[in-house]
Design a protein around this nucleic acid. Structure first.
Length: 427
RNA sequence: GGAGAAGUGGCUGAGUGGUCGAAAGCGCCUGAUUGCUAAUUAGGUGAACGGGUCAAACCGUUCCGCAGGUUCGAAUCCUGUCUUCUCCGCCA
């Protein structure tokens, strides 16, 4: 969330930003409430001073006879104090509700526009979409042909949107993970296998609403636990409430987890197969940085995503997300969209990664700070996240781009030694 | 899963209803002193929020895992919750 003081002092910029992002929030009311709250806060503090002094006097009294009348007075003071506190808390709660709706400010270079039509293509990967001299299959057909992906079994055991990976597909899945983790370790990331469940309070801290009619989150009955939708939740939770030394930053983590999403109301042709599923494995990059580092680290995350997809020979384009298409916490977001020959009529771009600089929007909520030696006080860190591989979609991109006329799939060079073969699905 | 114990400042650790934001030690910072890779000594040393200031100083409120409760008053008593440890049981 944004700092209240910042909102108060930059109300016009905040309003403009909300318009750019196509988010409706009553900023004026927020400002008005916060101004009132500050006055009330002073009142509460003064009443507290009074009540504390009165209590102290009772402690110093000689005997009960002296004490009783003082108690009566103190009780009244406390009543006044509590009443003022209640009024303050009400204001505070209302402000908080509004404050949570206010999105992060956007990077000045961010393309301005109310939806994804204004997204800006920044560039393409090393590999251009391939011209097939045969009719390419989609990943579902390939998966069925070789018994690599079993959706029917997934539905029967678990439900629609679940699947089994089998045979060489498992080798590919594991090889991608191993490759990504090794590459990220080379670049200073600490590999971190996280829990797949987290306490609801952690979800809420990161900005997910675990229970309720519109939730995308699976939660465990009779427990305050939910399945995570991304390792961002657990990795953020890992540092929530902590203060680190500035010299430790940037902290770069490579999260490995399963991700669970209900995907309520997202069925249809565009989400066939592995594209939109309820469970997938994800190798996620996450970074905590100093404020002045975050832009550079964001570029680094984007570059890593490009390097990974170049390495597996998948064509992609890089998109600079427009203001109206940004999630609330993002200051700037780049997506990689891979070419998927089996998608749509004759191939379409499909999102495979996403990297966001969330500046201090999440850390303020999570209370993650850094301290500078010899300086008083602390500041909020910046947080960034980026997908290395979301396995489900990475698998689609490899199968569909590297398929051969006979239905086999040529394995990207960097994965061959890991998988112990050059081709999968060979006759 | 059952029984018990515990969570205090950067760390160790005292504190069972008021004088406690909190003893003591360690660490760290500043000064003094000794001519030696350190000792001795004096002092200082948490955070958030609000006010204040050019910036400080300074003032106020809050914070002893977290959330509630009792009380004029809670680190201290009560409830819930999270975490850790010990013992028992079960288990990959």
């Amino acid at each position: 969330m944004l700092d209240r003081k910042y909102i108060l002092e930059n109300a016009d910029a905040v309003k403009q930003n909300c318009d750019n992002r196509n988010v409706k929030v009553d900023v004026d009311r927020l400002v008005q409430l916060e101004t009132a709250r500050r006055v009330k806060q002073q009142e509460v503090q003064d009443l507290n001073t009074e009540a504390n002094a009165a209590s102290k006097k009772i402690g110093q009294a000689k005997d009960d006879a002296q004490r009783e009348p003082l108690k009566v007075a103190a009780r009244q003071l406390n009543k006044n104090k509590d009443a003022a506190q209640d009024e303050h808390d009400k204001l505070d709660a209302e402000i908080n509700e509004l404050q949570l709706l206010v999105p992060n400010m956007a990077h000045p270079d961010c393309p301005v526009g109310v939806d994804d039509k204004s997204n800006l293509e920044l560039g393409r990967g090393k590999h251009a979409p391939r011209e097939f001299d045969f009719k390419p299959l989609d990943h579902l057909e390939l998966g069925e042909k070789h018994d690599w992906i079993d959706f029917e079994g997934g539905s029967r055991t678990t439900g629609n949107g679940f699947y089994f990976l089998k045979g060489e597909m498992v080798l590919l899945d594991l090889a991608l993970q191993q490759y990504a983790v090794a590459e990220l370790m080379k670049r200073g990331f600490t590999p971190t296998v996280t829990p797949d469940l987290a306490q609801d309070s952690v979800l809420e801290g990161i900005g997910f609403n675990p229970r309720g009619p519109e939730t995308q989150i699976y939660s465990i009955e009779n427990m305050n636990l939910s399945l995570i939708g991304t390792a961002e939740i657990t990795l953020g939770g890992l540092y929530s409430g902590k203060t680190v030394m500035d010299t430790e930053l940037p902290i770069k983590l490579c999260g490995i987890s399963h991700c669970y999403r209900t995907e309520a109301g997202a069925a249809g042709r565009a989400s066939r197969g592995l594209y939109r599923v309820h469970q997938f494995t994800k190798i996620e990059m996450f970074a905590f940085t100093l404020p002045e580092q975050s832009d550079a680290v964001h570029e680094e995350l984007r570059q890593i995503e490009c390097d990974l997809f170049d390495a597996i020979g998948v064509p992609y384009r890089v998109v600079d997300t427009a203001t109206g298409d940004l999630g609330g916490p993002a200051y700037r977001k780049y997506d990689l969209e891979a070419w998927m020959p089996g998608r749509g009529e004759s191939g379409e771009w499909g999102e495979v990664t996403s990297t966001s600089n969330c500046t201090d929007y999440q850390s303020r909520r999570l209370n993650i700070r850094y301290k500078q030696k010899d300086k008083k006080g602390t500041n909020f860190v910046h947080t960034l996240n980026g997908t290395a591989f979301a396995l489900s979609r990475a698998l689609i991109s490899i199968l569909e781009n590297h398929q051969n006329a006979d239905g086999s799939v040529t394995i990207p060079e960097v994965l061959r030694s890991i998988m112990g073969r050059d081709v999968m699905g060979a006759a």
